[in-house]
């Protein structure tokens, strides 16, 4: 199949990139796309089933701050700090998720709970300013020369590119595993009708909780790696409403129902934001973000399945020739 060959070719290009001397700035953009692509994928793992979280900044922030604080205050290597952050995020996901799912807090109400969670984490970080540096952010202490496997600090962007690439690949692999599992069917079913899903024997609470824990864990992992890459964390950039909504918008814009959709979302939003930032600069303050916002809204209105989802649909419609049962099936799916 050409699809598989295309995948290998794409992967080969991604692996080869750090060895061909890509300028540092572009390397930086690529690393950002991979890390955020991973985070958006982590969000979409639950978001695609109607579990719309507007507070994933909470998990991202927990992951990022745990690793930085563990390093600075306890001297704990990020190799332990990151798992610790992941564990904490999962714990928070259970504490918030279990009552929500047990008592059927769904849809908008669930979104509101998560929205509050993101803010609670941001405010907690700010309030603990004696340790976290408050809204000024926090810089993990440099270790030795600046390159150390123990401290997970690397002066070369290329090294981090490889780490980010592995992370991102792991995210896509996990997505595929979930997608092929029976749990995906159960989640699809309960996102359509919880009572009916319960009536065929789906343990609704457990199923939702499991996918939320997975999503929170991956998001925290992304946060930890992000902190190690930038070696600077700030409550505004890793937690709170701004970043939480950025996660949602990007994942939806790229397409949250396909494995690579959230990554496409990361490419679009990061490239768009950077281009606008450079093109407009600081002449008209706020114009770049305004245009960015308007374009996102347009994406979401006109491509409800996301850019990648929309393209795939278009391609399938072309190849199907518009006839046959499958095409009819797709029509229905696209309409709702």
């Amino acid at each position: 199949m050409t699809g598989r060959r295309l995948q290998y070719a794409g992967l080969a290009v991604l692996v080869a990139l750090p060895f061909v001397g890509v300028p540092e700035y572009y390397m930086h953009i690529l690393v950002l796309i991979l890390i955020w692509g991973f985070v958006y994928t982590a969000w979409a793992i639950m978001g695609r089933f109607g579990l719309v979280s507007l507070g994933h900044g909470a998990f991202l922030g927990i992951g990022a701050y745990t690793v930085a604080l563990a390093w600075n205050l306890l001297g704990l290597t990020p190799w332990l700090g990151i798992p610790l952050g992941v564990g904490l995020a999962v714990l928070v996901a259970v504490v918030i998720g279990y009552p929500c799912f047990r008592f059927r807090v769904v849809g908008h109400y669930f979104a509101l709970v998560t929205l509050a969670l993101g803010e609670v984490v941001r405010l907690t970080i700010v309030a603990l300013r004696d340790h976290t540096g408050g809204s000024l952010g926090l810089t993990p202490n440099r270790y030795g020369e600046g390159t150390s496997l123990y401290a997970l600090q690397f002066a070369d962007k290329e090294v981090f590119y490889v780490i980010a690439l592995l992370l991102w690949l792991a995210g896509i692999w996990i997505w595929r595993r979930v997608d092929a599992s029976m749990a995906r069917f159960a989640m699809d079913a309960l996102s359509e009708d919880e009572d009916a899903a319960a009536s065929v024997g789906v343990h609704v609470t457990a199923q939702k909780l499991r996918i939320t824990m997975l999503s929170a864990a991956l998001t925290a992992l992304g946060g930890g790696v992000y902190a190690q890459y930038l070696l600077y964390v700030n409550p505004g950039t890793v937690s709170g409403i701004g970043v939480s909504l950025q996660i949602v918008f990007a994942a939806i814009a790229g397409g949250m129902f396909t494995a690579l959709g959230p990554t496409v979302g990361a490419m679009i939003t990061i490239v768009l934001a950077e281009t606008l930032r450079i093109a407009i600069g600081t002449e008209v303050i706020g114009l770049d973000t305004t245009i960015y916002g308007v374009m996102l809204i347009l994406f979401i209105i006109f491509l409800p399945k996301g850019v990648l989802g929309g393209l795939i649909e278009l391609y399938e419609r072309r190849t199907a020739g518009g006839a046959g049962a499958m095409a009819g099936k797709r029509e229905v799916g696209g309409g709702a």
Binding site: E192, D195, G201, G333
Partner: peptide
């Protein structure tokens, strides 16, 4: 269930597959 309560955006066979979920 009352009112059928199928999974409307799953195919007939997928609905039946969900029936054998346990």
């Amino acid at each position: 269930l009352e009112n059928r309560r199928l999974f409307p955006r799953m195919s007939v066979e997928e609905n039946l597959k969900m029936g054998a979920f346990i």
